[in-house]
Write a protein that binds this DNA or RNA. Structure first.
Lengths: 239, 239
DNA sequence: CGACACCTTGAAGAGGTTCAAGAAATGTGG
DNA sequence: CCACATTTCTTGAACCTCTTCAAGGTGTCG
């Protein structure tokens, strides 16, 4: 079991700088290792948690790609986000000690399970962790403001352009190409997130392709002209 | 100055149960009184904070009504929420120690200024406060999920119905009528929040009025048939 | 290799926007 | 306190973007 313990350690994890506070002393780093109770694999298509389930833990994504979505009684479904390695999910569950959305793996994934009791306990002692937890939650709030702006005031082309730029930027921060990407989600899931129908997503991709802005081969996307995408999002301001 | 100190005390505030943790012992209650550094009046139309300003504090609304909105370089504007007495604003500023939205009073208001340093300090010692801060942030995340659902998948009538039901419910929790309300915001602000044009807001109000669901006199609204509003939001499920 | 899920494209239609004009309410200054 | 300016709200008509419905094509996985 020693091997397991070492495997689980945050202090050894190459994603640490993405999901954990940086600049900790050795003492605090060791305390952080108590955060992760276990690792948990999540098969593609299965859920990490579902709306209605009791909330116990936050999850740091180690590998894989997730979507989160909320569902209404009358069967409406809204994708609220796509999450990749180094990001934390489960924050929605804190307020009522019950999850309010579903987290579904879009590819085989593995997460670090961080019991929330323990997060609160340690963050009372490690100021950097406390601050970090607050920042993670605030960042999510700011992200959602951006989505509201997108959904409330942008047209289809602008939404998809903003979506692609956001994906590329996050992938680049993880060391991937800043021009090539493989979408892990369907057109329908993109459409749900962006408030448009899958046909509109497809048509908009085709238009970008005709205009030479991106190359589209099913889920393989090459950004040919990121500047043009930025101009689509932000028509007034010429970069 | 003693009078001031007494005035400021959370332990005497009748909004305490809305904005502060409940069920505290006397010792913890006294500690909470250190949270509020000052009160600050905000005149109608002026801002409590603006995007770009340094973040220092969260604000609990004592009296009045606010909107928060984000603005893009190219002049797009999106209302991200309406806040009333007992609610906390400023969470967006934590992540980058800088506000990312504007908070503007829609009527003369007064807020309790809670320096965030002090919140973090006290919440390290008062577990109930720590838990409460986490819940406030989580609640905001869940609220925004709801807005995303609204913006992403509802039609104009459904959006406005959901909006009215939400307002009424929050007002009722504050002891106001569950049928009468006075809108503090313009049609344009409602439209911005709901992702529709002010003309559409106006037309949708008129349609509700023709259908006998609500009475509309400018900003004075009377909910005649809340059940009907619920059916508009949730067409499948018959209540 | 065949079944199934996913994607693309076309054509018709609906919901919401845009533009425009006038009415009602609100605020301001004399 | 009243008159005028300004803001806000309502309503109509034409238009446009996105949706809906439909069909066929492409890719993927057991």
């Amino acid at each position: 079991m020693l091997k397991d313990t070492i495997n689980i350690a945050c202090s050894n994890c190459n994603l640490r700088e993405l999901c954990m506070p940086i600049g900790l002393g050795a003492d605090d780093l060791v305390r952080l290792d108590d955060l992760v109770a276990a690792r948990r694999p999540v098969k593609r298509g299965s859920s990490l948690f579902r709306a209605g389930e009791k909330f116990t833990s936050l999850y740091a994504i180690r590998v894989g790609f997730f979507k989160t979505c909320v569902t209404t009684e009358d069967g409406r479904d809204q994708v609220t986000g796509f999450q990749m390695a180094g990001e934390v999910i489960g924050l929605d569950g804190i307020v009522n000690e019950q999850h309010t959305c579903n987290a579904i793996a879009l590819e085989d994934a593995e997460v670090c399970v961080m019991p929330f009791d323990r997060i609160e306990e340690i963050s009372r002692e490690v100021v950097a962790l406390q601050r970090h937890v607050h920042k993670i939650m605030s960042r999510e709030i700011v992200r959602e403001h951006g989505v509201m702006l997108l959904l409330g005031s942008m047209r289809a082309e602008e939404r998809l352009a903003a979506f692609l730029l956001n994906l590329i930027q996050r992938l680049q921060a993880r060391g991937f190409s800043r021009s090539d990407l493989v979408l892990r989600m369907t057109r329908e899931e993109i459409g749900s997130y962006l408030g448009m129908k899958l046909e509109t997503v497809s048509r908009t991709f085709s238009r970008f392709s005709e205009d030479g802005i991106v190359e589209v081969n099913q889920r393989h996307i090459v950004i040919r002209d990121a500047e043009a995408l930025r101009r689509v999002v932000n028509p007034q301001v010429c970069h």
